[in-house]
Design a protein around this nucleic acid. Structure first.
Length: 573
RNA sequence: CGGGAUGUGGCGCAGUUUGGUAGCGCGUCUCGUUCGGGACGAGAAGGGCGCAGGUUCAAAUCCUGUCAUCCCGACCA
Protein backbone atom coordinates (compact mmCIF):
# COMPACT_ATOMS: atom_id res chain seq x y z
CA UNK A 1 0.00 0.00 0.00
CA UNK A 2 1.54 3.26 -1.12
CA UNK A 3 0.52 6.39 0.64
CA UNK A 4 1.82 9.08 -1.61
CA UNK A 5 0.85 12.66 -1.12
CA UNK A 6 0.41 12.93 -4.88
CA UNK A 7 -2.49 10.47 -4.63
CA UNK A 8 -4.04 11.81 -1.46
CA UNK A 9 -7.62 12.73 -2.24
CA UNK A 10 -8.49 16.26 -1.23
CA UNK A 11 -6.88 19.58 -2.04
CA UNK A 12 -4.97 22.00 0.08
CA UNK A 13 -5.49 25.74 -0.12
CA UNK A 14 -3.07 28.58 0.26
CA UNK A 15 -5.67 31.09 1.31
CA UNK A 16 -7.84 31.08 4.38
CA UNK A 17 -11.50 30.57 3.50
CA UNK A 18 -13.41 33.72 4.29
CA UNK A 19 -16.13 32.07 6.34
CA UNK A 20 -13.82 30.32 8.77
CA UNK A 21 -13.73 32.29 11.95
CA UNK A 22 -11.66 30.02 14.13
CA UNK A 23 -8.23 28.60 13.35
CA UNK A 24 -9.06 24.92 13.64
CA UNK A 25 -11.87 25.35 11.14
CA UNK A 26 -9.69 27.28 8.70
CA UNK A 27 -6.81 24.83 8.95
CA UNK A 28 -9.03 21.80 8.53
CA UNK A 29 -10.49 23.27 5.37
CA UNK A 30 -7.13 24.51 4.08
CA UNK A 31 -5.42 21.23 4.84
CA UNK A 32 -7.96 19.05 3.06
CA UNK A 33 -9.37 17.47 6.21
CA UNK A 34 -13.05 18.34 5.86
CA UNK A 35 -15.59 19.52 3.37
CA UNK A 36 -18.89 21.09 4.27
CA UNK A 37 -21.92 19.31 2.85
CA UNK A 38 -24.79 21.17 4.49
CA UNK A 39 -25.33 23.35 7.51
CA UNK A 40 -23.48 21.62 10.34
CA UNK A 41 -22.80 18.52 8.27
CA UNK A 42 -19.33 17.57 7.03
CA UNK A 43 -17.53 14.90 5.09
CA UNK A 44 -14.02 13.96 6.22
CA UNK A 45 -11.08 13.29 3.99
CA UNK A 46 -8.49 10.66 4.80
CA UNK A 47 -6.25 12.73 7.10
CA UNK A 48 -9.09 13.54 9.49
CA UNK A 49 -10.48 10.03 9.25
CA UNK A 50 -7.12 8.68 10.36
CA UNK A 51 -6.94 11.14 13.26
CA UNK A 52 -10.45 10.29 14.36
CA UNK A 53 -9.70 6.57 14.22
CA UNK A 54 -6.75 7.07 16.54
CA UNK A 55 -8.75 9.16 18.96
CA UNK A 56 -11.46 6.53 18.95
CA UNK A 57 -8.92 3.82 19.63
CA UNK A 58 -7.57 5.71 22.63
CA UNK A 59 -11.09 6.20 23.95
CA UNK A 60 -11.85 2.52 23.38
CA UNK A 61 -8.79 1.42 25.30
CA UNK A 62 -9.62 3.62 28.26
CA UNK A 63 -13.27 2.60 28.28
CA UNK A 64 -12.32 -1.07 28.12
CA UNK A 65 -9.87 -0.39 30.90
CA UNK A 66 -12.75 0.56 33.21
CA UNK A 67 -14.65 -2.57 32.19
CA UNK A 68 -16.74 -1.02 29.46
CA UNK A 69 -18.26 -3.23 26.79
CA UNK A 70 -18.58 -1.79 23.34
CA UNK A 71 -22.03 -2.11 21.80
CA UNK A 72 -23.91 -0.36 19.05
CA UNK A 73 -27.27 1.37 19.14
CA UNK A 74 -29.28 2.37 16.07
CA UNK A 75 -29.11 5.88 14.68
CA UNK A 76 -32.81 5.72 13.89
CA UNK A 77 -34.96 5.10 16.93
CA UNK A 78 -38.71 4.60 17.22
CA UNK A 79 -40.51 7.51 18.84
CA UNK A 80 -42.12 5.05 21.22
CA UNK A 81 -38.82 4.64 23.08
CA UNK A 82 -38.62 8.37 23.58
CA UNK A 83 -42.24 8.48 24.62
CA UNK A 84 -41.50 5.89 27.28
CA UNK A 85 -38.97 8.21 28.89
CA UNK A 86 -41.26 11.17 28.31
CA UNK A 87 -38.68 12.98 26.25
CA UNK A 88 -40.38 12.79 22.85
CA UNK A 89 -42.44 15.87 23.67
CA UNK A 90 -40.11 17.44 26.18
CA UNK A 91 -36.92 17.77 24.18
CA UNK A 92 -36.87 20.74 21.85
CA UNK A 93 -36.40 21.00 18.11
CA UNK A 94 -32.88 19.59 18.25
CA UNK A 95 -34.49 16.15 18.24
CA UNK A 96 -35.14 15.42 14.58
CA UNK A 97 -38.51 13.70 14.31
CA UNK A 98 -39.76 12.08 11.15
CA UNK A 99 -42.09 9.43 9.72
CA UNK A 100 -41.37 6.30 7.75
CA UNK A 101 -43.41 4.97 4.79
CA UNK A 102 -45.95 3.39 7.12
CA UNK A 103 -46.41 6.65 8.92
CA UNK A 104 -44.48 5.31 11.90
CA UNK A 105 -42.90 7.96 14.11
CA UNK A 106 -39.12 7.92 14.39
CA UNK A 107 -36.32 10.11 15.67
CA UNK A 108 -32.64 10.40 14.88
CA UNK A 109 -30.64 9.49 17.95
CA UNK A 110 -29.16 12.52 19.65
CA UNK A 111 -28.29 10.61 22.81
CA UNK A 112 -29.00 7.00 23.70
CA UNK A 113 -30.19 6.61 27.27
CA UNK A 114 -33.44 5.06 26.08
CA UNK A 115 -31.69 2.70 23.72
CA UNK A 116 -29.28 1.67 26.47
CA UNK A 117 -32.08 0.88 28.90
CA UNK A 118 -33.92 -0.93 26.14
CA UNK A 119 -30.89 -3.06 25.37
CA UNK A 120 -30.28 -4.32 28.90
CA UNK A 121 -33.53 -4.27 30.81
CA UNK A 122 -34.40 -7.93 30.26
CA UNK A 123 -30.84 -9.03 30.87
CA UNK A 124 -30.16 -7.19 34.12
CA UNK A 125 -32.95 -8.50 36.34
CA UNK A 126 -30.74 -9.70 39.16
CA UNK A 127 -28.45 -7.69 41.41
CA UNK A 128 -25.78 -10.24 40.50
CA UNK A 129 -25.52 -8.72 37.01
CA UNK A 130 -24.49 -5.30 38.35
CA UNK A 131 -22.55 -3.13 37.87
CA UNK A 132 -21.82 -2.93 34.17
CA UNK A 133 -21.09 -0.30 31.57
CA UNK A 134 -21.87 -0.32 27.87
CA UNK A 135 -20.65 2.20 25.36
CA UNK A 136 -20.67 2.95 21.66
CA UNK A 137 -18.82 5.24 19.31
CA UNK A 138 -21.34 6.35 16.79
CA UNK A 139 -23.11 9.04 14.81
CA UNK A 140 -25.46 11.38 16.58
CA UNK A 141 -27.70 13.95 15.05
CA UNK A 142 -28.86 17.09 16.78
CA UNK A 143 -30.75 19.65 14.81
CA UNK A 144 -28.91 22.55 16.40
CA UNK A 145 -30.35 25.99 15.88
CA UNK A 146 -26.94 27.18 14.89
CA UNK A 147 -23.88 25.17 14.07
CA UNK A 148 -20.58 26.99 13.88
CA UNK A 149 -16.84 26.88 14.08
CA UNK A 150 -16.14 23.98 11.74
CA UNK A 151 -16.17 20.77 13.78
CA UNK A 152 -16.59 22.57 17.10
CA UNK A 153 -20.34 22.62 16.85
CA UNK A 154 -22.08 20.56 14.20
CA UNK A 155 -25.40 18.84 13.75
CA UNK A 156 -24.14 15.42 12.73
CA UNK A 157 -21.20 14.16 14.70
CA UNK A 158 -19.49 11.11 16.13
CA UNK A 159 -19.72 10.64 19.84
CA UNK A 160 -18.58 8.11 22.33
CA UNK A 161 -21.43 7.63 24.75
CA UNK A 162 -21.29 5.29 27.69
CA UNK A 163 -24.00 4.16 30.10
CA UNK A 164 -23.32 2.52 33.44
CA UNK A 165 -25.83 0.66 35.59
CA UNK A 166 -25.52 0.18 39.34
CA UNK A 167 -27.36 -1.32 42.24
CA UNK A 168 -26.61 1.60 44.54
CA UNK A 169 -25.86 5.30 44.44
CA UNK A 170 -22.56 4.63 46.22
CA UNK A 171 -21.51 2.24 43.51
CA UNK A 172 -22.43 4.78 40.84
CA UNK A 173 -20.34 7.41 42.59
CA UNK A 174 -17.41 5.07 42.77
CA UNK A 175 -17.67 4.32 39.07
CA UNK A 176 -18.23 7.97 38.25
CA UNK A 177 -14.87 8.78 39.81
CA UNK A 178 -13.20 5.99 37.88
CA UNK A 179 -14.63 7.37 34.69
CA UNK A 180 -13.47 10.84 35.64
CA UNK A 181 -9.93 9.48 35.87
CA UNK A 182 -10.30 7.59 32.60
CA UNK A 183 -11.33 10.83 30.94
CA UNK A 184 -8.27 12.58 32.28
CA UNK A 185 -6.12 9.85 30.74
CA UNK A 186 -7.93 10.15 27.43
CA UNK A 187 -7.42 13.89 27.18
CA UNK A 188 -3.82 13.56 28.18
CA UNK A 189 -3.20 10.84 25.61
CA UNK A 190 -4.73 12.84 22.75
CA UNK A 191 -2.44 15.72 23.63
CA UNK A 192 -4.67 17.90 25.76
CA UNK A 193 -3.44 17.51 29.33
CA UNK A 194 -4.72 21.01 30.05
CA UNK A 195 -8.38 19.96 29.83
CA UNK A 196 -10.10 20.65 33.16
CA UNK A 197 -13.31 19.32 34.61
CA UNK A 198 -15.92 21.73 35.87
CA UNK A 199 -19.14 21.21 37.80
CA UNK A 200 -22.04 21.58 35.40
CA UNK A 201 -25.73 22.08 35.11
CA UNK A 202 -27.48 18.85 34.24
CA UNK A 203 -29.80 20.37 31.66
CA UNK A 204 -32.12 18.07 29.80
CA UNK A 205 -30.36 14.93 30.97
CA UNK A 206 -31.96 15.04 34.37
CA UNK A 207 -30.10 13.64 37.33
CA UNK A 208 -27.89 15.32 39.85
CA UNK A 209 -24.13 15.53 39.81
CA UNK A 210 -22.38 16.18 36.54
CA UNK A 211 -19.08 17.46 35.23
CA UNK A 212 -17.96 18.86 31.93
CA UNK A 213 -14.45 18.57 30.56
CA UNK A 214 -13.34 21.86 29.13
CA UNK A 215 -10.48 22.98 26.97
CA UNK A 216 -10.09 26.60 27.97
CA UNK A 217 -9.98 28.63 24.79
CA UNK A 218 -11.21 32.03 23.69
CA UNK A 219 -13.19 30.36 20.90
CA UNK A 220 -15.07 28.13 23.34
CA UNK A 221 -18.81 28.44 23.58
CA UNK A 222 -19.23 27.92 27.28
CA UNK A 223 -18.46 30.32 30.09
CA UNK A 224 -16.44 28.70 32.81
CA UNK A 225 -15.97 30.06 36.31
CA UNK A 226 -12.61 29.31 37.88
CA UNK A 227 -11.30 30.33 41.29
CA UNK A 228 -7.70 31.49 41.34
CA UNK A 229 -7.32 30.69 45.04
CA UNK A 230 -8.78 27.22 45.33
CA UNK A 231 -9.80 24.42 43.00
CA UNK A 232 -13.39 25.57 42.51
CA UNK A 233 -14.42 25.26 38.86
CA UNK A 234 -17.92 25.40 37.46
CA UNK A 235 -19.83 26.07 34.32
CA UNK A 236 -21.41 29.52 34.42
CA UNK A 237 -24.81 27.83 34.30
CA UNK A 238 -24.08 25.98 37.51
CA UNK A 239 -21.97 28.55 39.39
CA UNK A 240 -23.43 29.90 42.60
CA UNK A 241 -23.32 33.66 42.82
CA UNK A 242 -22.38 35.04 46.20
CA UNK A 243 -23.13 38.72 46.80
CA UNK A 244 -22.09 40.46 49.98
CA UNK A 245 -24.05 43.66 50.22
CA UNK A 246 -23.58 46.18 52.97
CA UNK A 247 -26.29 48.70 53.56
CA UNK A 248 -25.71 52.42 53.66
CA UNK A 249 -25.93 53.59 57.24
CA UNK A 250 -29.04 55.62 56.60
CA UNK A 251 -31.99 54.54 54.52
CA UNK A 252 -33.41 57.51 52.69
CA UNK A 253 -37.16 57.77 52.40
CA UNK A 254 -38.84 56.49 49.25
CA UNK A 255 -39.17 59.42 46.88
CA UNK A 256 -41.19 59.46 43.66
CA UNK A 257 -39.23 61.12 40.85
CA UNK A 258 -40.53 62.10 37.42
CA UNK A 259 -38.31 60.32 34.88
CA UNK A 260 -39.73 60.94 31.41
CA UNK A 261 -38.68 58.32 28.83
CA UNK A 262 -36.09 56.91 31.20
CA UNK A 263 -36.67 53.19 30.93
CA UNK A 264 -33.35 51.39 30.75
CA UNK A 265 -30.76 50.97 33.47
CA UNK A 266 -28.32 53.04 31.41
CA UNK A 267 -30.85 55.86 31.14
CA UNK A 268 -31.57 55.69 34.84
CA UNK A 269 -27.89 55.85 35.70
CA UNK A 270 -27.20 58.89 33.56
CA UNK A 271 -30.40 60.60 34.72
CA UNK A 272 -29.53 60.13 38.40
CA UNK A 273 -25.79 60.29 37.82
CA UNK A 274 -25.22 56.98 39.53
CA UNK A 275 -24.02 53.44 38.77
CA UNK A 276 -26.02 50.28 37.95
CA UNK A 277 -25.25 48.66 41.31
CA UNK A 278 -27.39 51.36 42.92
CA UNK A 279 -30.44 50.29 40.95
CA UNK A 280 -32.94 47.48 41.11
CA UNK A 281 -34.10 46.18 37.77
CA UNK A 282 -36.94 43.88 36.80
CA UNK A 283 -36.49 41.14 34.23
CA UNK A 284 -39.62 39.46 32.98
CA UNK A 285 -39.83 35.96 31.56
CA UNK A 286 -42.67 33.80 30.44
CA UNK A 287 -42.98 30.22 31.54
CA UNK A 288 -43.14 27.63 28.82
CA UNK A 289 -45.62 25.58 30.87
CA UNK A 290 -48.48 28.05 31.27
CA UNK A 291 -47.19 31.20 29.49
CA UNK A 292 -47.55 33.18 32.69
CA UNK A 293 -45.06 35.98 33.24
CA UNK A 294 -42.53 35.75 36.03
CA UNK A 295 -40.92 38.91 37.36
CA UNK A 296 -37.40 38.69 38.70
CA UNK A 297 -35.91 41.62 40.55
CA UNK A 298 -32.16 41.80 40.43
CA UNK A 299 -29.51 44.39 41.20
CA UNK A 300 -28.94 46.54 38.13
CA UNK A 301 -25.33 45.52 37.55
CA UNK A 302 -26.04 41.76 37.53
CA UNK A 303 -27.29 39.61 34.70
CA UNK A 304 -29.88 36.89 34.97
CA UNK A 305 -28.54 33.35 34.78
CA UNK A 306 -31.39 31.81 32.86
CA UNK A 307 -30.19 28.26 33.42
CA UNK A 308 -30.40 28.68 37.17
CA UNK A 309 -33.74 30.45 36.98
CA UNK A 310 -35.07 27.65 34.81
CA UNK A 311 -34.03 25.08 37.38
CA UNK A 312 -35.68 27.04 40.16
CA UNK A 313 -38.93 27.39 38.23
CA UNK A 314 -38.78 23.81 37.03
CA UNK A 315 -39.72 24.67 33.49
CA UNK A 316 -38.46 26.33 30.35
CA UNK A 317 -38.61 30.11 30.14
CA UNK A 318 -38.31 32.69 27.43
CA UNK A 319 -38.07 36.49 27.52
CA UNK A 320 -41.51 37.98 27.91
CA UNK A 321 -43.11 40.69 25.87
CA UNK A 322 -44.45 43.18 28.35
CA UNK A 323 -47.71 44.53 27.08
CA UNK A 324 -48.71 46.41 30.21
CA UNK A 325 -50.94 43.60 31.40
CA UNK A 326 -50.74 41.94 34.81
CA UNK A 327 -49.98 45.36 36.32
CA UNK A 328 -46.56 45.43 34.64
CA UNK A 329 -45.54 48.81 33.25
CA UNK A 330 -42.77 48.23 30.73
CA UNK A 331 -39.61 50.06 31.70
CA UNK A 332 -40.91 51.12 35.10
CA UNK A 333 -41.49 47.89 37.00
CA UNK A 334 -40.57 48.22 40.65
CA UNK A 335 -40.77 46.00 43.69
CA UNK A 336 -42.56 48.54 45.86
CA UNK A 337 -46.34 48.11 45.71
CA UNK A 338 -46.21 46.05 42.57
CA UNK A 339 -49.82 45.04 42.05
CA UNK A 340 -49.61 41.93 39.91
CA UNK A 341 -50.91 38.40 39.75
CA UNK A 342 -47.55 37.21 38.36
CA UNK A 343 -45.01 35.21 40.24
CA UNK A 344 -42.44 37.64 41.70
CA UNK A 345 -38.94 36.59 42.61
CA UNK A 346 -35.97 38.36 44.17
CA UNK A 347 -32.39 37.61 43.32
CA UNK A 348 -29.97 37.44 46.21
CA UNK A 349 -28.02 40.34 44.72
CA UNK A 350 -30.70 42.53 46.31
CA UNK A 351 -30.42 41.05 49.78
CA UNK A 352 -29.46 43.63 52.37
CA UNK A 353 -29.58 46.65 50.05
CA UNK A 354 -30.98 50.12 50.54
CA UNK A 355 -31.03 53.47 48.77
CA UNK A 356 -31.57 51.87 45.38
CA UNK A 357 -33.45 53.35 42.45
CA UNK A 358 -36.32 51.29 41.16
CA UNK A 359 -39.34 51.64 38.90
CA UNK A 360 -42.53 53.05 40.36
CA UNK A 361 -44.99 50.89 38.37
CA UNK A 362 -46.19 54.05 36.73
CA UNK A 363 -45.15 55.41 33.34
CA UNK A 364 -42.28 57.90 33.58
CA UNK A 365 -41.72 57.55 37.34
CA UNK A 366 -39.03 55.95 39.52
CA UNK A 367 -38.44 55.79 43.21
CA UNK A 368 -35.21 56.61 44.91
CA UNK A 369 -34.40 55.43 48.42
CA UNK A 370 -35.69 51.90 47.89
CA UNK A 371 -34.87 49.71 50.90
CA UNK A 372 -35.81 46.18 50.03
CA UNK A 373 -36.27 45.01 53.60
CA UNK A 374 -38.30 48.03 54.62
CA UNK A 375 -40.33 48.41 51.44
CA UNK A 376 -41.20 44.86 50.47
CA UNK A 377 -41.23 43.13 53.81
CA UNK A 378 -39.57 39.80 54.25
CA UNK A 379 -39.00 38.17 50.91
CA UNK A 380 -37.15 35.02 50.00
CA UNK A 381 -34.08 35.45 47.87
CA UNK A 382 -33.09 33.06 45.12
CA UNK A 383 -29.78 32.54 43.35
CA UNK A 384 -30.55 33.42 39.74
CA UNK A 385 -27.78 35.83 38.76
CA UNK A 386 -24.60 35.30 36.82
CA UNK A 387 -21.26 35.22 38.54
CA UNK A 388 -19.04 38.17 37.65
CA UNK A 389 -15.26 38.44 37.36
CA UNK A 390 -13.63 38.92 40.76
CA UNK A 391 -16.80 37.62 42.39
CA UNK A 392 -16.78 35.65 45.61
CA UNK A 393 -15.82 32.00 45.40
CA UNK A 394 -18.54 29.76 46.90
CA UNK A 395 -15.82 27.41 48.10
CA UNK A 396 -13.03 29.52 49.60
CA UNK A 397 -14.90 32.86 49.86
CA UNK A 398 -12.08 34.85 48.27
CA UNK A 399 -12.97 37.39 45.62
CA UNK A 400 -10.87 35.57 43.08
CA UNK A 401 -13.27 34.16 40.54
CA UNK A 402 -12.23 34.33 36.92
CA UNK A 403 -14.40 33.78 33.90
CA UNK A 404 -13.00 32.04 30.82
CA UNK A 405 -14.35 30.49 27.70
CA UNK A 406 -14.18 26.75 27.23
CA UNK A 407 -14.76 24.11 24.57
CA UNK A 408 -16.71 21.25 26.11
CA UNK A 409 -15.01 18.08 24.90
CA UNK A 410 -16.69 15.63 27.24
CA UNK A 411 -19.05 15.26 30.10
CA UNK A 412 -20.12 12.82 32.76
CA UNK A 413 -23.49 12.62 34.51
CA UNK A 414 -24.90 10.84 37.50
CA UNK A 415 -28.34 10.18 36.10
CA UNK A 416 -29.83 8.28 39.01
CA UNK A 417 -33.07 6.46 38.27
CA UNK A 418 -34.56 9.04 35.91
CA UNK A 419 -34.61 6.65 32.95
CA UNK A 420 -34.88 3.30 34.66
CA UNK A 421 -37.99 4.46 36.49
CA UNK A 422 -39.57 6.05 33.46
CA UNK A 423 -38.90 2.96 31.39
CA UNK A 424 -39.67 0.56 34.18
CA UNK A 425 -36.34 -1.24 34.32
CA UNK A 426 -36.03 -3.13 37.59
CA UNK A 427 -33.98 -5.88 39.21
CA UNK A 428 -34.35 -8.11 42.23
CA UNK A 429 -31.96 -7.09 44.96
CA UNK A 430 -30.24 -9.24 47.57
CA UNK A 431 -33.09 -8.57 49.97
CA UNK A 432 -35.61 -9.92 47.49
CA UNK A 433 -37.04 -6.50 46.70
CA UNK A 434 -37.57 -5.06 43.24
CA UNK A 435 -35.53 -1.90 42.66
CA UNK A 436 -34.60 0.56 39.96
CA UNK A 437 -30.97 0.49 38.88
CA UNK A 438 -29.00 3.71 39.17
CA UNK A 439 -27.46 5.03 35.95
CA UNK A 440 -24.57 7.17 34.88
CA UNK A 441 -23.76 8.42 31.41
CA UNK A 442 -20.51 9.63 29.93
CA UNK A 443 -19.96 11.37 26.60
CA UNK A 444 -17.06 12.53 24.46
CA UNK A 445 -17.48 14.32 21.14
CA UNK A 446 -14.86 12.72 18.91
CA UNK A 447 -14.86 15.24 16.05
CA UNK A 448 -14.99 18.14 18.43
CA UNK A 449 -12.07 16.65 20.32
CA UNK A 450 -10.05 16.47 17.09
CA UNK A 451 -10.91 20.11 16.42
CA UNK A 452 -9.97 21.00 19.99
CA UNK A 453 -6.56 19.37 19.58
CA UNK A 454 -6.06 21.38 16.41
CA UNK A 455 -7.24 24.53 18.13
CA UNK A 456 -4.81 24.04 21.00
CA UNK A 457 -1.88 22.83 18.93
CA UNK A 458 -1.26 24.74 15.74
CA UNK A 459 0.80 27.58 14.31
CA UNK A 460 0.13 29.89 11.38
CA UNK A 461 1.08 27.17 8.92
CA UNK A 462 -1.01 24.28 10.14
CA UNK A 463 -1.88 21.86 12.92
CA UNK A 464 0.84 20.30 15.05
CA UNK A 465 -0.61 16.87 15.76
CA UNK A 466 0.74 14.89 18.67
CA UNK A 467 2.18 11.53 17.64
CA UNK A 468 -0.69 9.75 19.39
CA UNK A 469 -3.33 11.07 17.01
CA UNK A 470 -1.34 12.23 13.99
CA UNK A 471 -2.68 11.03 10.64
CA UNK A 472 0.78 9.66 9.88
CA UNK A 473 3.87 9.29 12.01
CA UNK A 474 6.40 10.31 9.39
CA UNK A 475 6.18 12.69 6.45
CA UNK A 476 8.86 11.81 3.93
CA UNK A 477 9.81 14.62 1.55
CA UNK A 478 11.92 13.90 -1.51
CA UNK A 479 13.25 17.20 -2.78
CA UNK A 480 14.28 17.08 -6.46
CA UNK A 481 12.89 13.73 -7.57
CA UNK A 482 14.02 14.60 -11.09
CA UNK A 483 17.40 13.50 -9.79
CA UNK A 484 17.32 9.71 -10.17
CA UNK A 485 19.56 9.17 -7.18
CA UNK A 486 17.20 11.12 -4.96
CA UNK A 487 14.17 9.28 -6.23
CA UNK A 488 15.79 5.89 -5.79
CA UNK A 489 17.03 6.70 -2.31
CA UNK A 490 13.71 8.16 -1.15
CA UNK A 491 11.79 5.17 -2.53
CA UNK A 492 14.15 2.94 -0.69
CA UNK A 493 13.79 4.78 2.60
CA UNK A 494 10.03 4.85 2.20
CA UNK A 495 9.96 1.08 1.74
CA UNK A 496 12.18 0.50 4.74
CA UNK A 497 10.08 2.75 6.98
CA UNK A 498 6.93 0.98 5.88
CA UNK A 499 8.59 -2.36 6.47
CA UNK A 500 9.37 -1.20 10.02
CA UNK A 501 5.64 -0.78 10.48
CA UNK A 502 5.68 3.00 10.50
CA UNK A 503 2.85 5.08 9.09
CA UNK A 504 4.43 7.17 6.37
CA UNK A 505 3.06 9.73 3.96
CA UNK A 506 5.47 10.06 1.06
CA UNK A 507 5.78 13.21 -0.99
CA UNK A 508 7.63 12.42 -4.20
CA UNK A 509 6.00 15.11 -6.29
CA UNK A 510 8.15 17.13 -8.58
CA UNK A 511 7.32 20.44 -6.95
CA UNK A 512 9.43 23.13 -5.38
CA UNK A 513 10.56 22.68 -1.81
CA UNK A 514 8.36 25.52 -0.66
CA UNK A 515 5.20 23.85 -1.93
CA UNK A 516 6.28 20.58 -0.43
CA UNK A 517 7.00 22.01 3.00
CA UNK A 518 3.85 24.09 3.09
CA UNK A 519 1.74 21.04 2.39
CA UNK A 520 3.64 19.15 5.06
CA UNK A 521 2.91 21.94 7.52
CA UNK A 522 -0.79 21.70 6.74
CA UNK A 523 -0.79 17.96 7.33
CA UNK A 524 0.92 18.52 10.65
CA UNK A 525 2.72 15.18 10.82
CA UNK A 526 5.08 15.27 13.83
CA UNK A 527 8.23 14.04 12.10
CA UNK A 528 9.47 15.17 8.71
CA UNK A 529 12.25 13.40 6.88
CA UNK A 530 13.90 15.27 4.02
CA UNK A 531 15.88 13.61 1.27
CA UNK A 532 17.61 16.14 -0.96
CA UNK A 533 20.73 16.62 -3.09
CA UNK A 534 22.16 18.83 -0.40
CA UNK A 535 21.73 16.13 2.26
CA UNK A 536 22.82 13.40 -0.08
CA UNK A 537 26.17 15.08 -0.58
CA UNK A 538 26.83 14.54 3.11
CA UNK A 539 25.34 11.06 2.88
CA UNK A 540 22.66 12.23 5.30
CA UNK A 541 19.00 12.86 5.57
CA UNK A 542 17.36 15.48 7.68
CA UNK A 543 14.84 14.80 10.42
CA UNK A 544 12.85 17.74 11.73
CA UNK A 545 9.85 17.85 13.97
CA UNK A 546 6.71 19.77 13.04
CA UNK A 547 7.04 21.86 16.18
CA UNK A 548 10.64 22.72 15.18
CA UNK A 549 12.04 21.49 18.47
CA UNK A 550 14.07 18.77 16.81
CA UNK A 551 16.28 19.21 13.79
CA UNK A 552 18.84 16.52 13.06
CA UNK A 553 21.14 15.43 10.29
CA UNK A 554 21.47 11.69 10.37
CA UNK A 555 23.69 9.36 8.35
CA UNK A 556 21.61 7.46 5.84
CA UNK A 557 22.49 4.04 7.17
CA UNK A 558 21.30 5.04 10.63
CA UNK A 559 18.26 7.03 9.74
CA UNK A 560 15.68 4.22 9.75
CA UNK A 561 16.53 3.24 13.30
CA UNK A 562 16.76 6.83 14.38
CA UNK A 563 13.32 7.65 12.96
CA UNK A 564 11.86 4.54 14.54
CA UNK A 565 13.35 5.56 17.89
CA UNK A 566 11.97 9.05 17.67
CA UNK A 567 8.49 7.82 16.86
CA UNK A 568 8.40 5.38 19.74
CA UNK A 569 10.40 7.19 22.41
CA UNK A 570 10.74 10.93 22.06
CA UNK A 571 7.23 11.32 20.68
CA UNK A 572 5.42 8.56 22.48
CA UNK A 573 3.31 10.80 24.68
C1' C B 1 -36.70 32.51 16.22
C1' G B 2 -34.81 37.95 16.40
C1' G B 3 -30.52 41.52 14.64
C1' G B 4 -26.49 42.20 10.95
C1' A B 5 -23.81 40.75 6.59
C1' U B 6 -22.76 38.04 2.18
C1' G B 7 -23.83 34.93 -2.23
C1' U B 8 -19.69 36.40 -9.16
C1' G B 9 -15.06 29.73 -12.47
C1' G B 10 -12.10 24.85 -7.37
C1' C B 11 -10.29 29.04 -3.53
C1' G B 12 -9.75 34.47 -2.41
C1' C B 13 -11.85 38.81 -4.41
C1' A B 14 -13.15 43.36 -7.88
C1' G B 15 -17.27 44.95 -10.78
C1' U B 16 -23.40 46.68 -8.26
C1' U B 17 -23.64 53.64 -6.33
C1' U B 18 -23.92 56.00 -12.23
C1' G B 19 -27.71 48.98 -16.33
C1' G B 20 -24.36 48.24 -22.18
C1' U B 21 -23.74 41.70 -22.08
C1' A B 22 -17.85 39.53 -16.87
C1' G B 23 -12.50 40.63 -14.80
C1' C B 24 -8.04 39.97 -11.37
C1' G B 25 -4.86 36.87 -8.03
C1' C B 26 -4.21 31.74 -6.56
C1' G B 27 -5.16 26.86 -8.32
C1' U B 28 -5.76 23.47 -12.87
C1' C B 29 -3.74 21.65 -18.05
C1' U B 30 0.53 21.88 -22.00
C1' C B 31 5.67 23.18 -23.27
C1' G B 32 10.25 25.10 -21.75
C1' U B 33 13.59 27.22 -18.06
C1' U B 34 14.12 26.78 -12.74
C1' C B 35 14.68 24.00 -7.89
C1' G B 36 15.63 23.98 0.32
C1' G B 37 10.01 27.75 2.35
C1' G B 38 4.13 28.48 -1.76
C1' A B 39 9.69 30.04 -8.87
C1' C B 40 9.50 32.21 -14.13
C1' G B 41 7.98 32.63 -19.30
C1' A B 42 4.61 31.29 -23.19
C1' G B 43 0.03 29.08 -24.29
C1' A B 44 -4.87 26.85 -22.75
C1' A B 45 -9.37 25.18 -20.31
C1' G B 46 -13.14 26.74 -16.98
C1' G B 47 -18.16 31.03 -14.89
C1' G B 48 -22.93 34.36 -17.23
C1' C B 49 -22.90 36.34 -11.71
C1' G B 50 -27.45 31.59 -5.45
C1' C B 51 -32.52 30.62 -7.43
C1' A B 52 -37.39 32.40 -9.45
C1' G B 53 -40.08 36.20 -11.26
C1' G B 54 -40.41 41.46 -12.83
C1' U B 55 -38.84 46.41 -15.05
C1' U B 56 -35.92 47.63 -19.59
C1' C B 57 -33.97 47.82 -26.34
C1' A B 58 -30.41 45.86 -22.72
C1' A B 59 -29.72 43.35 -15.79
C1' A B 60 -24.16 40.63 -12.00
C1' U B 61 -25.85 45.72 -11.48
C1' C B 62 -32.71 48.28 -10.46
C1' C B 63 -37.50 45.93 -8.08
C1' U B 64 -40.14 41.65 -5.69
C1' G B 65 -39.94 36.98 -3.72
C1' U B 66 -37.19 32.88 -2.24
C1' C B 67 -33.02 29.79 -0.80
C1' A B 68 -28.25 29.24 1.22
C1' U B 69 -23.99 30.60 4.05
C1' C B 70 -21.48 33.47 7.88
C1' C B 71 -21.50 36.67 12.35
C1' C B 72 -24.16 38.39 17.08
C1' G B 73 -28.12 36.90 20.23
C1' A B 74 -31.90 33.18 21.74
C1' C B 75 -31.39 27.89 22.13
C1' C B 76 -28.19 23.58 23.23
C1' A B 77 -26.66 15.59 26.24
Amino acid sequence: MHMKLANLVGERFKERPSDCLIDSHALMVRGGYIKNVANGIYSSFTPLKRIVKKIEQIIREEMDNIDGQEVSFPVVLPASLWEESDRYDNVGDELLRFYDRNNGKYVLGMTHEEAAVHLVREYAQSYLKYPFMIYQIQTKFRDEARSRGGLIRVREFTMKDAYSFHSSQADLEDYYNKCHKAYERIFERVGLPQVVSVASDSGMMGGNLSHEFMLLSPVGEDSVVICKSCNYRANMDAAENIVNNTKDEMSNPLTLVHTPNINTIDDVCSFFNTTPDKTCKAVVYQKESDNKPVVLFIRGDYEVNEAKLKNILGCDIYPAEINNEHGLVAGFIGAYKLNTDCEVLFDRSLENTNNLICGANKVDYHYTGFDIGRDTGNVDYIDASKVTANGTCPNCKNNTLEISRGIEVGNIFQLGTRYTEAMNMTYLDEDGKRKYPVMGCYGIGVGRLAAAVCEARHDDYGPIWPMSVAPWQVHLCAVRVDDHKIKELADNIYNQLVKKGLEVIYDDRSVSAGVMFSDADLLGVPLRVIISPRNLKENCCEIVSRDKKISLKVKLDECIDQINDLVFTEFAE
